[in-house]
Simulated scan of single mutants.
Amino acid sequence: MTSEHDVPADVVERFGSYARETSALTARVHGRLAERLGLSQTDEKCLDLALRAEGPVTAGRIAELSGLSTGAVTGVIDRLEQAGYVRRVRDPHDRRKVLVEVTLGEEARSARLSLGAQAALAEVLSRFTPEERDVLERYSKTVIEAFRKRVVDA
């Protein structure tokens, strides 16, 4: 959905600043989580991408979403598999295709929760009415869609 509303440059700059700060803090959260899981930040981020997929995912899809080469993703998957966070499985619909399935143990799930990111998000969202949260959700989805078109799908 597009709009006819002009956005002043100072508003774009302000929101850009918020986005950069959020991105930097999110990277730090992922860095701490990676450290707790004994992974590099790249490996943890790929694990996160696989975790958010609806079921097993191809290495190619992880490469596409992460921006890494397929060769680099093969190394990531090797390390994640060795650490016990994922396993390779055959695609039940095409036995020639290999999928990556997340096998996070309870310790890893606890590490993710112990950072308190979900609690912080719940605290922030509690400051907004349901109607305001609807607007925030629409904004977030629109930003994701716009960035995905320019970065992932380009």
Rank of each mutant, 00 (worst) to 15 (best):
D6F: 13
D6I: 10
D6V: 09
V7G: 06
A9H: 09
E13V: 13
E13M: 12
S17T: 15
Y18C: 12
A19P: 02
R20A: 13
R20D: 10
E21Q: 14
E21Y: 12
S23L: 15
A27F: 07
A27E: 06
R28P: 01
V29S: 11
R32Y: 09
L33C: 01
A34Q: 05
A34P: 04
E35Y: 10
R36E: 14
R36N: 10
L37V: 05
G38F: 06
S40D: 11
S40A: 13
S40L: 07
Q41H: 13
D43E: 10
E44D: 07
E44H: 04
E44I: 01
K45N: 11
K45A: 09
C46Q: 02
L47H: 03
D48Q: 14
L49C: 03
A50Y: 01
A53H: 06
A53Q: 06
G55D: 05
G55M: 09
P56S: 08
V57D: 00
T58A: 07
T58V: 07
A59W: 00
G60N: 12
G60Y: 02
G60P: 00
G60M: 04
I62P: 00
E64V: 05
E64G: 02
L65Y: 02
L65D: 02
L65T: 02
G67N: 05
G67Y: 05
L68P: 01
A72Y: 00
A72R: 03
A72G: 01
A72V: 03
V73D: 00
T74I: 10
I77W: 00
D78K: 05
D78H: 04
R79W: 10
L80I: 08
Q82I: 06
A83S: 09
A83E: 02
A83T: 02
A83W: 00
Y85W: 08
Y85G: 00
Y85P: 00
V86Q: 00
R88T: 09
R88A: 03
R88S: 11
V89P: 02
P92M: 09
P92C: 09
H93K: 14
H93N: 15
D94N: 04
D94L: 01
R95D: 13
R96L: 14
R96K: 14
R96P: 03
K97V: 15
V98I: 07
L99R: 00
V102Q: 03
V102E: 03
L104H: 03
G105I: 07
E106W: 09
E106L: 11
E107V: 09
E107D: 12
A108M: 06
A108T: 03
R109E: 14
R109Q: 14
A111C: 04
R112Q: 06
R112F: 03
S114P: 04
L115H: 01
A117M: 08
A120Y: 05
L121H: 11
L121T: 14
A122G: 04
E123Y: 14
E123H: 15
